[in-house]
Amino acid sequence: MNRPARLVPAALVTTAALLLTACGSGDEDGSSSDKIKGADRGSSTSSPSPSTSAASDGRPEIPFPSTFTMNFERWTNSDPKLQAILNDGKEALRANHAAIIEADPDATYVAFYNSGAALDSSKKWINGYVKTDDSLIGVVRVFEPQVSVNSSGLGVLFYCVDEGKGFTKNRKTGKVVGTPDGTSPNLQYRTTLEKTSQGVWKTRSVETERGACGQ
C-alpha cells in the first residue's frame, strides 16, 4: 500500500520556465532556463539519508526518526558548484519531510533551505499534516537528479521521488494510509535555487508532477 496522493501537492509553486516531460530528458550542451542541459547525473552510488544532518559551517541539524528514511541515489556531480546545488536541494527536501514528522512548520531548518514562494508553500504543506495529526513512515527513494545553472545564475534542479514504500500514519489512531489504487507513487520535482550571501543555495520555487518519472 502506498502513501496517499495528497502527501505531495500537485504543484507547490508553478514555474513556467521549468518544463520537462520526464526525468532523464534534456540535452547535453549549454544551459537554459527552460530545460536542463549539460546536467551531470553523477555516479551510480546510492546515498541513504542519515538520521540527522548538520555541517560544521553552522547549518542546522535536520532530525529524522528511524521509522522514516530518504534514499538519495546518484546524488553526486564532478562540478563543485553543481554538487553544492545538489547538496542544498537535498537538504530542502529533507527539511520539509522532517518538519512534517516533527509537526513543526516553523522549524529553523525549513526556512534555512527554502525562501520566498517555496517557503510559503512548504509551510502550507507541512501545516496540512499538522491539522490532520499525520506523520510519515517508511522509505522514500529520490533519484535521477539533473542539475545546472541557468543564464540568470539560478540553480535548476530536477529529480524524481518514489513514494511507493512511504506512508502516512495518524498520531492518535495509528492508522496507516497509502496512495490510492491507480495513482502513480512517482513524482518529478522541478526546482530553482538561489545562492545567498552566506553561500546557501536556497530553494525559491518548486513544481511537482505526479507520474512524470519512470521506475
Rank of each mutant, 00 (worst) to 15 (best):
I100N: 05
I85G: 08
E144I: 11
A107P: 02
D162Y: 05
F112N: 09
D120F: 01
R74H: 15
A107Y: 02
V161H: 04
K165F: 10
G164S: 15
V149H: 02
K169A: 12
L93S: 09
V110C: 04
A118Y: 02
D79P: 08
A117G: 03
A98G: 07
F72I: 11
K131Y: 00
V110I: 05
S121K: 07
L157G: 08
N170R: 01
K131W: 00
K165C: 06
L154A: 11
A118P: 05
A99I: 01
S152N: 13
S49G: 15
V139K: 10
V142C: 15
L154G: 02
C160G: 15
W75R: 06
T108V: 10
S115R: 08
Q83D: 14
P145Y: 04
S66W: 00
V147I: 11
T132Q: 09
G116T: 07
F72E: 12
P63V: 07
Q83M: 09
K123A: 09
T76N: 13
Q146F: 07
S122L: 02
Y113K: 03
S66Y: 01
S121G: 15
L86W: 03
A92N: 10
L136M: 08
F72V: 10
L157F: 13
N71H: 12
G164C: 09
G138R: 05
D79W: 00
K124H: 04
T76C: 04
K123S: 08
A117D: 13
G116E: 07
I85E: 06
K124P: 03
K124Y: 02
V156T: 11
R74W: 01
S151F: 04
P60Y: 01
L93I: 12
L119Y: 03
D79E: 12
T67C: 05
K165T: 14
L157I: 04
G89Y: 03
K124D: 14
S78V: 12
K90P: 07
S51T: 11
I62R: 01
K123T: 09
T132A: 13
S151V: 14
L86D: 08
T76E: 14
K123Q: 14
Y159A: 14
E91F: 05
R171H: 03
I126D: 06
D104P: 03
K123D: 06
Y109L: 03
A98Y: 02
A92R: 03
M70E: 14
M70S: 14
P105Y: 01
A118T: 09
K124Q: 13
K124A: 15
P80K: 03
F68T: 11
S51Y: 07
D134C: 04
Y109F: 13
P63Q: 04
